[in-house]
Amino acid sequence: MRYGLFLGCNVPAVRPDVERAIRLTMPRLGAELADLEGSVCCPAFGAFPSADETASLAVSAWNFSLAEEKGVELVTQCGSCYSSLRTARKRLLEDAEIREAVDRLLAKAGRVFRGTVVVRHMIDVLYNDIGPERIRGTLDFPLDGMKAVVQYPCHTLFPSEVVGFDTPAGRPHMLRDLVEALGAEVQTYSRELQCCGGAGGFVKGSYAGASEFAFKKLRAMGSETEAELIVVSCITCLEHLDRMQGELGKKGGEGGCPIPVFDYNQVLALCMGFDPAEVASISIMPRDGLIARIRRA
């Protein structure tokens, strides 16, 4: 199995420890990662897709051409990148007129979009190509006895026709199963299927509304479960829930107890015994206590 790792903008710049965790864990599971040299912003929905559709699709096609040239499926952890690329691919394959305009633009840059690209999300690859069984067999420090909650990346759920891989679309289970494969018990809470609220322009345009939206989710996790960690698989969920928990903590008593947030590949890396200083070193909520427990230190 060989994949083109699409990094996007946020992971390499804001959470390089997640990039490191991905680069260490996937090969150990038999998934070789190729770099997509010269990749650019997906483009983010708030950028070109909000300004000029042809330009936007040309940017996506630039990225597609890199994966096609290497003959690899493209895999990304970022939900927004995943959804933006999936949507663009569909549009390019369905609209001949816009495809022609995009082909002309790409030709100027000496690149070609063939239309063969396959865009995958990390959860999809981990679950469907590798599988919980195989993951279970690679762990030095399983999460036995620990309780977790998961946050599904909205961009991997809807619109299911374009981005979906979990079934049924409205009741996903793959991320839960992957966390259970690490040995943890995954508990359910009432706002589990709500998005984190951190993507797009909500936080910038209505900070109070966006924080309250995240607080409701965090309070539900805190009051309805005994979770010791939150597991996500999207850079925006990771950053936003971590940041919002810091904010909630500042508000004191009403917040409940703050629960550390990890990207799935980070927890996997810790369970595999990789160095926490490399794979889980950047966060707002302190994670040291939990990391020590995972490593039985």
């Binding site: 929905f45 961009h155 759920l157 809807f158 679309a169 998005c195 797009g200 209505s206």
Partner: peptide, 15 residues
């Protein structure tokens, strides 16, 4: 109307 720029891009409505 600036409200379109608040969208979280979650596509719940789309679904």
């Amino acid at each position: 109307d600036e409200t379109p720029w608040l969208c979280v891009t979650c596509s719940a409505c789309e679904e």
